[in-house]
Design a protein around this nucleic acid. Structure first.
Length: 701
DNA sequence: AGTCGAGTTCTTTTT
DNA sequence: GAACTCGACT
């Protein structure tokens, strides 16, 4: 028998060397479907790899195969969707072939785009030292631009907020449609607004370019623009990359697909994906890209990998049911063939409310642990972060070790951003959001004062032809500083000068060190009572900087890797239970999976039911969730859900209702003392089809 | 005019 | 918890 364990890292021993390449027996280590894809001849190809069919394995072996066929590592471009996926893939390639992962150009689209712009950005007017705005920075910048060009716009409360507008503009850019068109589709009743939004978008674009800034979308948009407007750049990349592999191709948007098509002038693309798992249409992901791939690339070969090595036949049957429920015009048909032994039927649990849901899940987990499972074998998945709140609290109360991929990421923490903004300003003194960020920390300095200071400093800087840092230190500027802020201001300017000096003469470690131990060190000590903890985070930033020899490159990585340290661990070095959104669990697998919050309005989420979102996408999300499970799958429905403090009775999720009830079993949770729901007559009708009697409308006090 | 603190409301998904 | 509103204070 073959060993298809995808996660088995020790398959090839401890010290693979370049010589190991020759030892890979592709025929023996892959099944027929995988082997066909891995050894595919040159030419465009789609690999349709169903959930759990060894997609990552196929991709990594493909890279190894190309190397044995004489391809050089630097000729291979490996594009993924998330940093996690890219790291995992490159590690496994390295492990498999002994070729160090940094020799490949690989990473997320945004990451590679950032690198391309580092070399060719001047073609589109971007300086080499450009800085990248994260989400909240770009929201703030857009807000400022709106306030500048139409001060009344944001005061009207039925006008959309900057964040909403940024998302709308971002969506338009990712699907490569005019902003005005997208705006008109969104606000059909208000023609003026659409026009105005388009105007804001244009101002936003110009401001970013003028100030040497990019947002996430620019990394793709400008990348494509470079390729289209500059033959030298296009030819360079077209010649360099003889093989392009794209992971998760079903989640690619038009912009990304266009970039790939442009680089792959000779059609050497292998696109790997599964149309049933497309869950990013809200970010512009476009199923047509994978469905029409063969049209855009004549003579595409389609490879299907259908044997599932992950889940029990029972879970697969349920997963197939979910796909059956789809109402869609087209898709690639595929059958997932089971290969695992039988297990119990998936379990459906109607719980009284979120408390009982948490109670059930944790009790069930205790039993799993008692019977030999490790915490790391278990995942709790949910649609939105806040659905997990009760479980989180209960886990902390019981002292169960867990990791949560929380909403707040390492680099989005206030103190990290505060510090990074100072570095950004040093690298790119035109980075206005960066200046605002740290200037507003000083007492009596808010948005308005910060703008005045920056304006004045910029005038002085250009008039006297001195660097910005010097301009900030001039008499004229310090006169504008409010009295309460003077002391901080002097210390801040001193730090900035020292950091600026170091940036020109010393490696990034030294620069970051100076910033961390400068003015900001004092600032956090008298601002936060948990300053010690924050200081630790900043120390790790110094450590991070030591891996780079270029400051702007380091900052770019920092922002693009934002999810890297997002895992909040409650206990270190221990086997941990995982709490995750379904989106973040994509590509992962666990023996035991709990999907919570299976109520209409939670999952599928309310907006999708109201028609503002895509119900089909919600269903694909449910499919992704269910196919994470290897042995046992638990689906929990909280009948009462707290909405704005009052419990509201929920409908069972339509995704459960549409499943054949012979494909899962119903388990009633033990009554929980913490739950108020034990009204004496609950739980009727759970023998077969779920049916819900009344009586839950009582309010919780 | 602009900053700041208290109180309120509502949470999608991510590079 | 964070983002927003509102009123008080400088």
């Amino acid at each position: 028998m073959y060993d298809y364990e995808d996660e088995d890292d020790d398959l090839f021993g401890d010290a693979p060397t370049a010589a190991a390449k020759a030892q890979i027996d592709f025929r023996a280590e892959l099944n027929d479907d995988q082997y066909a894809a891995v050894t595919a001849p040159d030419g465009p190809a789609i690999v349709l790899a169903g959930a759990g069919s060894g997609k990552t394995r196929t991709l990594t072996y493909r890279v190894a195969y190309l190397l044995t066929q004489g391809a050089l590592p630097e000729e291979i471009l490996l594009l993924t969707f998330t940093n996690k996926a890219s790291r995992e893939m490159l590690d496994r390639v390295e492990h498999l072939t002994g070729v160090a992962s940094h020799q490949f150009l690989g990473g997320t689209f945004h990451h590679v785009g950032g690198q391309v712009l580092r070399s060719f950005g001047d073609v589109v007017g971007l300086p080499r030292n450009y800085t990248i705005l994260d989400d909240s920075d770009s929201d703030a910048l857009l807000g400022e631009i709106i306030r500048e060009s139409d001060p009344d716009f944001l005061k009207k409360k039925d006008n959309p907020k900057p964040k909403v507008l940024k998302n709308l503009i971002s969506f338009a850019r990712n699907v490569m449609r005019p902003v005005e068109e997208a705006a008109r589709a969104r606000y059909p009743s208000n023609r003026d607004v659409a026009e105005q939004i388009a105007f804001f978008a244009e101002e936003y674009r110009e401001t970013k370019l003028r100030r040497g800034l990019t947002d996430y979308d620019d990394l793709l948009e400008l990348w494509l623009k470079v390729l289209e407007s500059n033959d030298e750049a296009a030819t360079y990349y077209q010649n360099r990359f003889r093989h392009i592999l794209v992971d998760e191709y079903q989640d690619v948007n038009v912009l990304q697909a266009s970039i790939v098509d442009k680089i792959a002038a000779n059609h050497q693309i292998m696109a790997v994906g599964d149309d049933a798992q497309c869950i990013y249409t809200w970010r512009g992901a476009d199923l047509d890209q994978i469905l029409d791939f063969p049209k855009r690339h004549p003579e595409t070969t389609i490879y299907k990998i259908e044997t599932n090595y992950r889940s029990s036949p029972q879970i697969l049957e349920l997963a197939n049911d979910i796909l059956e429920s789809r109402s869609i015009d087209r898709s690639y048909t595929k059958i997932l063939k089971p290969s695992r032994p039988n297990e119990n039927l998936p379990v459906f649990v109607p719980a009284m409310d979120a408390y009982q849901q948490a109670d059930y899940v944790l009790n069930r987990i205790d039993r799993l642990i008692d019977s030999g499972a490790r915490y790391s074998d278990i995942a709790i998945l949910y649609r939105a972060h806040f659905h997990a709140m009760d479980i989180q609290m209960e886990l902390s109360r019981r002292g169960t070790p867990f990791v949560i991929t929380s909403g707040i990421r390492f680099f989005e923490q206030a103190h990290v951003k505060d510090l990074v903004s100072q570095l950004r300003f040093i690298v790119n003194p035109k980075d206005l959001p960066a200046f605002h960020r740290f200037a507003c920390l000083l007492p009596k300095i808010g948005e308005k004062t910060a703008s005045k200071i920056l304006n004045l400093a910029e005038t002085i800087s250009s008039k006297n032809n001195i660097p910005m840092v010097e301009a900030l230190a001039t008499e004229a500027v310090s006169k504008k500083i409010p009295a309460d802020a003077e002391e901080d201001w002097d210390a801040l300017v001193e730090t900035l000068q020292a950091v600026d000096e170091a940036a020109r003469t010393s490696p990034p470690v030294k620069v970051v060190d100076l910033a961390v131990n400068g003015w900001y060190a004092d600032f956090i000590r008298y601002t936060y009572d948990n300053w010690a903890h924050r200081e630790e985070d900043l120390e790790s930033l110094i450590e991070f900087a030591s891996r780079y020899d270029n400051l702007s490159e380091m900052l770019a990585e920092l922002i693009l890797l934002s999810s890297e340290s997002g895992n909040r661990v409650t206990r270190s070095e221990e086997s941990c239970l995982r709490l995750s959104t379904i989106h973040q669990a994509k590509g992962l697998e666990f023996p035991y999976v709990f999907i919570i919050g299976l109520a209409d309005g939670l999952f599928p989420i309310k907006r999708a039911i109201d028609g503002e979102g895509d119900l089909e996408e919600e269903r694909r999300l449910f499919y992704v969730a269910a196919t994470r499970a290897e042995k046992e799958l638990f689906m929990i429905f909280p009948m009462l859900s707290n909405q704005k403090g009052t419990p509201v009775r929920m409908q069972l999720s339509r995704f459960i209702r549409e499943l054949p009830d012979t494909h899962y079993e119903v388990e009633k949770p033990a009554p929980s003392y913490r739950s108020q729901g034990n009204y004496g007559r609950g739980n009727q009708g759970y023998g077969g089809k779920p049916k819900y009697g009344g009586g839950w409308a009582r309010r919780r006090s």
